[in-house]
């Protein structure tokens, strides 16, 4: 069984937001409610300002706090692939998972629209979904949080389950440059122009993602939380690596 993971090379990311846009299109996200986002930060005051950016999807944690706090098991870890998914039919909208996710990547969108005017009023849904956009992705699987978000539930990035889960068994990396694999590549990875994003099986020692994590000392965001993200960031191989503060999990031990 695969354990899919993503590697994001911060030295290559230009902050162009193509990934954010592709994700929004692929998953019919409401404007501003971005499962995948590039966050911009600034330091200092004008004219000495430094602008930085940081691409941030759901980390599909190995040990996800969102899953452990959910009182209905509506959010769950798929053992086949390691996706953290949502079952819209079980979610009660208590928002505990939002509170418990250290990365701020879960979305309850019944509140006031982030971007005005509220597009939901322009394309209202008759079927209990948030909206009915003119273009809809063909995939709809509420038990995996795929398709347009219904009312009263939390949603999150699926690692493009609807694509990745159809990839040929045993493949180590899903690379958009390999023609026969490109349809299985997550939308954000596929569109990344400077090729800052990579997607592959963390359980295969020879996968490209594993090699990059080893060679460039990939780090996981907020590793001290114990969530063990399956998304790794690279920021140059010359620096010392950031050690994990956690003991090894069974999967680490092999």
């Amino acid at each position: 069984m695969a354990k899919w993971g993503m590697v994001i090379d911060l030295d290559k990311c230009t902050g162009c937001q193509a990934c954010t846009t592709a994700c929004a299109m692929e998953n019919n996200r409401l404007p501003g409610e971005n499962w995948q986002d590039v966050l911009f930060y600034h330091e200092g005051t004008y004219p000495n300002v430094k602008l930085m950016w940081f691409p941030r999807p759901c980390m599909h944690c190995e040990n996800p706090s969102c899953v452990s706090v959910c009182p209905t098991k509506a959010t769950y870890k798929d053992p086949d692939g390691g996706f953290v998914l949502m079952d819209y039919n079980k979610c009660i909208g208590c928002k505990y998972c939002q509170v418990a996710c250290p990365y701020g990547v879960r979305f309850y969108v019944d509140e006031k629209a982030v971007v005005q005017p509220d597009i939901r009023g322009v394309f209202p849904s008759e079927t209990g979904r948030q909206w009915d956009p003119p273009y809809k992705g063909p995939q709809d699987d509420p038990s995996r949080g795929i398709g347009i978000q219904p009312h009263g539930v939390v949603s999150k990035c699926t690692f493009c389950y609807h694509k990745v889960s159809k990839a040929p068994k045993g493949v180590a990396d899903l690379d958009e440059d390999i023609p026969e694999l490109k349809e299985y590549v997550p939308a954000c990875v596929r569109v990344c122009a400077p090729k800052a994003r990579f997607f592959g099986d963390l359980d295969q020692p020879n996968s490209n993602v594993n090699k990059m994590i080893a060679d460039k000392r990939g780090v996981r965001l907020k590793d001290e939380t114990g969530n063990k993200p399956q998304v790794y960031y690279l920021s140059g191989g010359a620096t010392a690596s950031v050690p994990s503060l956690r003991s090894m999990s069974d999967s680490d031990k092999g």
């Binding site: 009182p71 209905t72 079980k90 009660i92 909208g93 208590c94 928002k95 009263g152 539930v153 939390v154």
Partner: peptide, 14 residues
Amino acid sequence: LGHPLRALWAIPFS
């Protein structure tokens, strides 16, 4: 809650 009635069965049987 987003789905109060669902909570009545979804929590105890989860």
